Amino acid sequence: TVKFKYKGEEKQVDISKIKKVWRVGKMISFTYDEGGGKTGRGAVSEKDAPKELLQ
């Protein structure tokens, strides 16, 4: 599970739902399947990112 803040809201998403991951400076950005055909997005700092996300 990845915990992150998006627009001031605390969120979390299961690693299995993450589609795409990329690095922006010291942040790790990602998109994930929100269900219902929607794609969500989020970002975590490199130090807070789970190891599975960095692979």
Score class of each variant (00 low, 15 high):
Ile28Ala: 01
Ile28Val: 08
Gln12Met: 12
Lys5Val: 13
Leu53Asp: 01
Glu46Cys: 05
Ile18Asp: 00
Ser16Leu: 09
Phe4His: 02
Gly35Phe: 04
Ser45Ala: 14
Val44Gly: 00
Lys5Pro: 05
Leu53Tyr: 02
Tyr32Met: 01
Ile18Met: 05
Val21Lys: 03
Val13Glu: 01
Leu54Trp: 09
Gln12Glu: 15
Glu10Cys: 09
Lys47Cys: 07
Pro50Trp: 03
Ser16His: 11
Thr39Phe: 12
Trp22Ser: 03
Gly36Phe: 13
Lys19Ile: 15
Tyr32Cys: 01
Lys7Ser: 06
Glu34Leu: 15
Asp48Ser: 09
Glu34His: 05
Thr1Pro: 08
Thr31Gln: 08
Lys38Ile: 12
Ile18Gln: 00
Lys7Cys: 11
Thr31Pro: 00
Phe30Met: 01
Thr39Lys: 07
Lys11Phe: 09
Tyr6Leu: 07
Glu10Gln: 12
Lys20Ala: 10
Lys26His: 12
Ser45Pro: 14
Ala43Glu: 14
Ala49Arg: 01
Lys47Pro: 04
Lys7His: 13
Thr39Trp: 13
Asp14Met: 13
Gly35Cys: 04
Ser45His: 15
Arg41Met: 13
Ile15Ala: 04
Tyr32Arg: 00
Lys51Asn: 11
Thr31Phe: 09
Phe4Ile: 05
Ser16Phe: 08
Lys20Val: 10
Gly35Tyr: 05
Ser16Thr: 11
Lys11Val: 11
Gly8Asn: 09
Lys3Ser: 11
Lys17Tyr: 10
Val13Ser: 02
Arg41Ala: 07
Gly40Ser: 08
Met27Ile: 13
Gly40Cys: 05
Lys38Cys: 04
Gly25Phe: 03
Glu46Ile: 15
Val2Met: 08
Arg23Val: 08
Glu9Asp: 08
Ala49Met: 05
Gly25Val: 02
Lys38Val: 12
Gly35Leu: 06
Ser16Ile: 13
Gly36Val: 07
Arg23Asp: 01
Tyr6Thr: 07
Ile15Phe: 08
Ile18Asn: 00
Lys51Asp: 12
Ser29Asn: 15
Gln55Arg: 12
Ala43Asp: 09
Phe4Met: 03
Asp48Val: 09
Val24Lys: 10
Gly8Tyr: 03
Gly36Glu: 14
Glu52Ala: 12
Glu52Val: 10
Thr39His: 08
Phe30Ile: 02
Trp22His: 04
Gly42Asn: 02
Val13Ile: 14
Lys38Pro: 03
Gly37Met: 04
Gln55Met: 15
Asp14Ala: 13
Thr1His: 11
Ser45Tyr: 14
Leu54Asp: 02
Gly40Arg: 06
Ser29Ala: 15
Thr31Ser: 07
